[in-house]
């Protein structure tokens, strides 16, 4: 089974990413290191080859179980880290992205969960792939915004605020698209656009935190401890929405249980 090769693919990708992060940290002269970009991209090619192979071997999009969504999160986290590095040239952002990605890769190695071919009828929809991948991409971009928020908080500076704002705008745009595609799918599958299901409630919580961040930044125009704290709060709520909601006592009431 394709999943048995995950550790090998992940190890090669991790080596490329670690080498890329090392090159980025080492580069002092130019804005960005070409070697870092090439190495990180090579790691992503290896990782995406595994995802493509898993997709083919399962005969369905690998987006159903929590382990499969972690796979996409790791992939998108590296994409957002690479784009943030390429556009804004923070030398450390690749290293932090690799560490964060590796946390989810290691969880997947230790707890791979079920990766069988079954795909229940409710998930056989046009909306399945866009809904989940768009969400995972927004989670990864907002994860990067969280890292910059933490950096600004620790260093007591707002020098990352322009980058953070851009990332939050991109992340919120994709988060909203994820919610809206979910609403359109829910209408098709269950008859209602929105039912205040536990997963939907936490999606609304996460979304409102980032909307609040944007409006607070529009109000004050400068980054404050409060707006940086909102990035941390948003990230925590996002984790709740993604998998934390499954551990709540009323998780069984949710219609979003597929794994």
């Amino acid at each position: 089974m394709m999943w048995d090769y995950f550790t090998g693919f992940a190890a090669v990708a991790a080596l490329c990413w670690a080498a890329g992060a090392f090159m980025a940290m080492r580069e002092k002269r130019s804005d960005f290191s070409r070697a870092a970009i090439v190495l990180t991209s090579a790691g992503m090619v290896v990782f995406s080859a595994f995802i493509a192979g898993l997709w083919i071997s399962l005969g369905r999009p690998p987006l159903r179980t929590m382990g499969e969504t972690r796979l996409w999160y790791s992939f998108f986290m590296m994409i957002s880290g690479l784009l943030t590095y390429r556009w804004w040239h923070y030398r450390w952002v690749l290293l932090v992205s690799v560490v964060m990605t590796m946390v989810f890769v290691v969880i997947n190695i230790l707890k791979p969960e079920i990766h069988d071919q079954t795909l229940m009828p409710a998930l056989q929809s046009f909306w399945f792939v866009p809904h989940v991948t768009v969400y995972m991409f927004s989670y990864a971009v907002l994860g990067c915004a969280f890292l910059l928020g933490i950096a600004g908080w620790i260093q007591h500076t707002d020098r990352y605020s322009v980058t953070t704002d851009r990332l939050v705008c991109i992340g919120l745009a994709f988060l909203t698209l994820g919610m809206l595609s979910g609403a359109l799918w829910a209408k098709q599958a269950w008859g209602n656009f929105w039912t205040w299901d536990p997963k939907e409630v936490w999606a609304a919580v996460t979304w409102s935190v980032y909307v609040l961040y944007i409006h607070m930044r529009l109000c004050s125009g400068r980054s404050t401890t409060l707006t940086q704290a909102l990035l941390v709060l948003g990230f925590v709520c996002m984790q709740m929405c993604w998998y934390g909601v499954n551990y709540l006592p009323w998780a069984g009431e949710s219609m979003h249980l597929y794994s």
Partner: peptide, 9 residues
């Protein structure tokens, strides 16, 4: 919003 962004600062 994704394409244009919002100048928040």
């Amino acid at each position: 919003l994704f394409i244009q962004g919002i100048p928040l600062a």
